[in-house]
Amino acid sequence: MRVVPSIDISRGMAVKRVRGKDGTGLVLGDPIKIAEELREMGYVSLHLVDLDAAEGKGDNVEVMERVMRGFSEVSVGGGIRDRSRLERFLSAGATKVVMSTLAFTQPDTFRRVVKGYEDRVLISVDYCDDRVLIRGWNESATSLEEAISHVNSLGVRGVIFTYVCNEGTRRGIDLNVGSYAKLIRGEKGYAGGIGSIQDLRELDRMGFNFAIVGMSLYTGVLRGVISV
Rank of each mutant, 00 (worst) to 15 (best):
V76C: 01
L183D: 11
G136P: 03
G214D: 04
S216A: 15
L183Q: 12
D126E: 15
V221I: 13
Y163Q: 07
R19G: 04
M99R: 00
S100G: 15
E146F: 10
G195R: 05
R17S: 04
T219Q: 12
R185M: 09
C128K: 12
R112M: 14
D30C: 08
E62C: 04
V156C: 05
R111S: 14
I7K: 00
R81N: 02
R135T: 07
S196M: 11
V74Y: 01
W137Y: 09
W137E: 01
R135E: 12
S124P: 10
D8I: 13
A103L: 13
E73A: 02
V63G: 00
I34R: 04
D108Q: 09
V225I: 15
K182C: 09
S179W: 10
T24F: 03
G56T: 05
R170H: 01
I7F: 03
G220N: 08
V121N: 00
D52E: 09
V98Y: 03
G193H: 05
L46K: 01
C165V: 06
F161Y: 07
V228D: 01
D204F: 04
A103Q: 05
S91H: 13
D8F: 15
V61G: 00
G172R: 05
V15Q: 00
R112D: 14
G20T: 10
H47N: 07
R157H: 11
G25A: 07
T101C: 14
M99V: 12
A141E: 03
V132W: 02
G12H: 07
T219M: 13
T169Y: 04
E139P: 02
T24M: 05
Q106V: 09
R185C: 07
Y180P: 10
I148T: 11
P31L: 02
I184H: 06
N209D: 14
G136C: 11
G77L: 13
E187M: 11
Y43N: 14
D174L: 05
R69N: 10
V61S: 11
S84T: 08
V4P: 00
S91N: 14
I134S: 02
L102V: 15
G29D: 11
I197Y: 08
F104S: 03
Y43L: 15
L38F: 05
S84K: 15
L28K: 06
D119M: 12
L90T: 12
A14Y: 11
T162M: 13
G178S: 11
Y190M: 12
E167H: 05
V159Y: 02
L90G: 03
R17N: 03
L86G: 01
E65K: 14
S72E: 14
L51I: 07
A14D: 03
Q198E: 15
S196Y: 09
V61Q: 04
V61I: 11
A94H: 01
